[in-house]
Computed example of a mutant assay.
Amino acid sequence: MLVNPKLKDVLNDQLCEAVLSLQSVDECYQFFEDICTVSELKALSQRLEVARMLRAGHTYEEVVERTGASTATISRVKRCLNYGADGYDTVLKRLEAKQK
């Protein structure tokens, strides 16, 4: 799939390269602690869990109960799962394969 041309620029390329350069979970924690606020990092983590749960067939009510996400956040993630760039699916498939 092609990258959204509205997002593609030198600064976003640099950010993606920076993330790809990380070599451990600890390095990820260090980087994300520096680049994100605690709230931003928790929001990113929450969205990934929402995507995982929706992909596994959980209801909105179950997702809200487990994650505390708003129904607006859940709807946005669901829209990305259905009509997005398949980023969630790529990551979730790789995480599932790693757990097996």
Results as ranks from 00 to 15, higher is better:
25 V>C: 07
67 T>N: 03
70 S>I: 04
16 C>E: 13
63 V>W: 00
42 K>A: 01
29 Y>R: 09
6 K>L: 13
74 I>K: 01
78 K>Q: 09
69 A>P: 00
93 K>D: 12
60 Y>P: 01
61 E>L: 07
29 Y>E: 08
82 N>I: 03
98 K>Y: 15
74 I>Y: 01
81 L>T: 02
90 T>R: 10
70 S>M: 03
73 T>Q: 02
4 N>C: 14
59 T>C: 04
41 L>T: 03
14 Q>D: 12
45 S>N: 03
60 Y>F: 15
12 N>M: 12
61 E>V: 02
19 V>R: 05
24 S>V: 11
74 I>A: 01
41 L>F: 14
97 A>Y: 08
81 L>M: 09
100 K>N: 14
73 T>G: 01
82 N>E: 15
21 S>N: 13
81 L>Q: 04
67 T>I: 08
61 E>I: 02
41 L>I: 08
48 L>W: 04
77 V>E: 00
73 T>Y: 02
41 L>M: 15
11 L>T: 13
27 E>W: 09
87 G>L: 11
67 T>M: 04
38 V>P: 03
43 A>T: 07
21 S>R: 14
71 T>G: 00
69 A>Q: 00
92 L>S: 05
33 E>M: 11
67 T>F: 02
45 S>L: 11
47 R>Q: 04
36 C>I: 03
32 F>L: 15
44 L>C: 04
25 V>W: 05
4 N>S: 13
39 S>C: 03
29 Y>N: 07
90 T>D: 04
19 V>P: 02
52 R>S: 06
93 K>V: 03
96 E>T: 13
66 R>P: 00
91 V>S: 03
97 A>E: 15
8 K>Y: 11
46 Q>K: 15
88 Y>I: 06
10 V>F: 11
68 G>K: 03
58 H>L: 13
83 Y>A: 04
34 D>V: 08
17 E>Q: 14
16 C>K: 06
62 E>S: 12
67 T>G: 08
55 R>S: 10
54 L>I: 06
59 T>I: 06
83 Y>I: 01
3 V>H: 10
39 S>D: 12
17 E>M: 12
29 Y>H: 09
59 T>H: 10
68 G>P: 04
95 L>E: 12
84 G>P: 05
33 E>D: 13
87 G>Y: 05
48 L>R: 02
16 C>A: 15
33 E>Y: 10
5 P>F: 12
92 L>E: 04
86 D>V: 09
89 D>L: 13
31 F>C: 07
45 S>Y: 01
93 K>C: 07
53 M>I: 03
49 E>S: 06
35 I>M: 14
77 V>F: 07
91 V>Q: 02
30 Q>T: 14
62 E>Y: 02
33 E>G: 09
62 E>H: 05
76 R>A: 13
98 K>E: 15
66 R>L: 11
95 L>A: 10
29 Y>K: 13
7 L>V: 13
82 N>V: 01
31 F>H: 08
70 S>N: 02
28 C>Q: 10
7 L>Y: 09
24 S>R: 11
81 L>H: 06
76 R>W: 07
73 T>F: 02
